[in-house]
Design a protein around this nucleic acid. Structure first.
Lengths: 146, 146
DNA sequence: CCCATGTCAGTATTACTGACATTG
DNA sequence: CCAATGTCAGTAGTACTGACATGG
């Protein structure tokens, strides 16, 4: 065989974990009036103020078109502001955006904490590092432009 | 703050890993004429013959309605057969389904192997276990029906 | 000139919720 | 009767591809 064994597959466990996490996050965020993509965008801007749309898209793992339309609603809601009209517009949270993010951000942190409750700090860091190692390993053969 | 720190967040690393994996899988499977959900369904049936639609749905982390419509195309394509008309219909791959799955299954195994190339067998198992621990931890408070 | 970006459309896939008959 | 299932619709949210102007 040598094929995939679901009961031993890291990929399958990965999918299970993410699905469960997404479900928990969406359920929680719904109560805060935010979708998961919206939250991700706001959180990204909170921690990395001044990102452009394209940078934000890369950080959220979506296309810049998808981020563009997501941002449109956030801009319209007054949670985010755009500065300049040049090539890379600086985006950042408004005061209202910061206020609206506070609760959800704490709630999300609590969920992540609950998810990791069974792991020691050492295990958590190992887990995070291994996940990054996995992502890096898959990105290699992409060989972006040139 | 005590809020989410993207650069230290396991959840963020999890999302990055899954997104990258999905991208690699979809790119590969496209060449085999299968979508990722279709592949998942076939692989599940290959390893657990006789599953019902609802069981399949749980195994693939989607609703039974979503699985139902996915199965419709696979049944129409003759890759899967349904037996009985009772409450829990037994589903299984046809000979054609098995044949069509072979290549994709090997390709997916290769991708998973590439993803894990930087990790020792011990690390891989640790990673898988930790992911399952995380998923379990989040599932607790759901408390399904009483 | 070139590449990345911002932006406008259109499309498509995918899954979801709701509803209801059926089965065990 | 009840819980789970199969199934039919309709809906929605999300992202994707294509295209094109702009800017550095």
């Amino acid at each position: 065989m040598g094929q995939v064994d679901l009961d031993r597959s890291v990929g399958y466990a990965l999918k299970r974990a993410v699905t469960t996490l997404h479900g928990a996050l969406e359920a929680e965020l719904r109560g805060h009036g935010l979708s998961l993509p919206q939250y991700a965008c706001l959180e990204l801007l909170a921690q990395r103020p001044g990102l452009s749309n394209a940078e934000l898209a890369r950080g959220a793992f979506v296309t810049r078109q998808a981020m563009h339309q997501l941002l449109a609603s956030l801009l319209a809601s007054g949670l985010v502001t755009s500065q300049g009209t040049g090539r890379a517009r600086r985006l950042q949270l408004t005061a209202e955006g910061q206020r609206r993010l506070r609760g959800p951000s704490l709630a999300v942190a609590a969920i992540e904490e609950r998810m990791l409750a069974g792991l020691s700090p050492h295990q958590r860091e190992n887990l995070r590092q291994d996940l990054i190692t996995c992502a890096e390993a898959l990105r290699e053969p992409e060989r972006r432009h040139a």
